[in-house]
């Protein structure tokens, strides 16, 4: 029974079994995440091409489906240039920092319910922490160092400006992003992502209860991931390529993958916090019952990934002062007002 819940997974199994299951889960999640990242790039190219009345990648494999693989091989074999004027330790560390934090943040994201595999059972999640949401926010807030240090260590004016813009922008929008989630937390009464999803049963999705918070979250998340219309850190018409101007080959690819991995995390969070996570109609034989929640989760995440691409190829870029004014003068007061109203309603009902 996939709905059945074991009381505490660690109690019933030995430490070895626990370690093995954790390692398998981690490897599986990282594998799926990296594949998702590769195919988000493919999706981006396809959708952008369609929006611009082009074909996009078609040559490698059917519908260009093997294009990500070809791109990966290309990145590995390209010459890795290291300019003589860079500050080497940080120049090398920066893409790693960006990538590590982008991948780590997926570790507390739940994908589905409890499943039983033979004698063992596990949650479809690497680990369930009772401060899960804060962990994701903390790890993503550390990710800004990758971008900032890349900009500084490159010793290049464009890079430095990109890095400065990125850090200022991410710190500013993190405030409204965090505050927009407080309304959801007040309703759910927990910081565990699993409990937040469980509180949304019977179509009590937070998108209906917290529409303002959802839009604040969405906009701030776009700014946090440096995507258009907030892609000023790498605005190619002003800054060449911003913070990754001096990077080539696999180091550049790591920034690229970190950006898309962050997008996946943000899409997962939006699904979990506002769209009921893996909740959806579940029916049929046990195997189908185990697979369907994951399918709903993936579909919802896919919707947000598509939205990302759609927005990018539809909206023009902000000006930097507009970006800052919008974050501090519009989103922040709105988020605070949303908290006050939500708290009042919850207190009145109690």
């Amino acid at each position: 029974m996939p709905r059945a819940r074991a009381p505490a997974p660690q109690d019933s199994m030995s430490i070895t079994t626990f370690a093995i299951i954790s390692i398998i889960k981690s490897l599986a999640v990282i594998g799926v995440l990296l594949t998702a990242v590769a195919y988000s790039v493919w999706l981006e190219r396809k959708v952008s091409a369609r929006i611009q009345n082009r074909w996009g990648p078609t040559r490698v494999g059917p519908f260009g489906l093997l294009q990500p693989l070809a791109d990966g091989v290309k990145f590995i074999f390209k010459e890795d240039l290291t300019q003589p004027h860079v500050y080497k330790p940080l120049y090398i560390a920066a893409p790693m920092i960006a990538m590590v934090f982008a991948i780590t943040s997926i570790s507390v994201i739940p994908f589905g319910n409890w499943v039983n595999i033979g004698p063992w059972g596990t949650y479809l999640q690497i680990t369930d922490l009772n401060i899960g949401l804060l962990v994701v926010l903390g790890i993503t807030s550390m990710g800004v160092y990758g971008v900032a240090l890349a900009g500084w260590a490159s010793n290049n004016k464009y890079s430095l400006l990109g890095g400065l813009r990125a850090s200022a922008q991410m710190v500013s929008y993190e405030v409204s992003l965090g505050l927009s989630l407080v309304g959801v937390l007040i309703i759910a009464g927990s910081l565990s992502l699993r409990n937040i999803v469980d509180a949304q049963r019977h179509l009590h999705w937070n998108i209906f209860l917290q529409p303002v918070a959802f839009f604040i979250y969405l906009i701030s998340a776009y700014a946090e991931t440096n995507r258009t219309p907030f892609d000023l850190p790498e605005a190619e018409s002003e800054l060449v390529a911003g913070y990754h101007t001096e990077y080539s080959a696999m180091k550049f690819a790591m920034f690229f993958m970190a950006e898309y991995a962050n997008m996946v995390t943000v899409a997962c969070l939006a699904t979990l916090l506002f769209f009921g996570g893996w909740l959806g109609p579940v029916f049929g034989p046990p195997l189908l019952q185990a697979v369907l929640p994951v399918l709903w989760f993936c579909l919802k995440v896919f919707f947000f990934m598509f939205l990302y691409v759609w927005v990018r190829w539809t909206l023009p870029r902000f000006r930097y002062d507009q970006l800052m004014a919008f974050g501090w003068k519009v989103l922040l007061p709105l988020a605070v007002a949303n908290i006050v109203v939500t708290a009042l309603i919850v207190a009145w009902r109690a």
Binding site: V135, L137, I139, S141, M142, V144, W152, S167, M170, V171
Partner: peptide
């Protein structure tokens, strides 16, 4: 979590 979010994630970014 607050230590990471506030100190490592926000205040130190401003230092940098």
């Amino acid at each position: 979590a607050v230590q990471v979010i506030v100190y490592a994630g926000a205040i130190m970014v401003l230092f940098v």
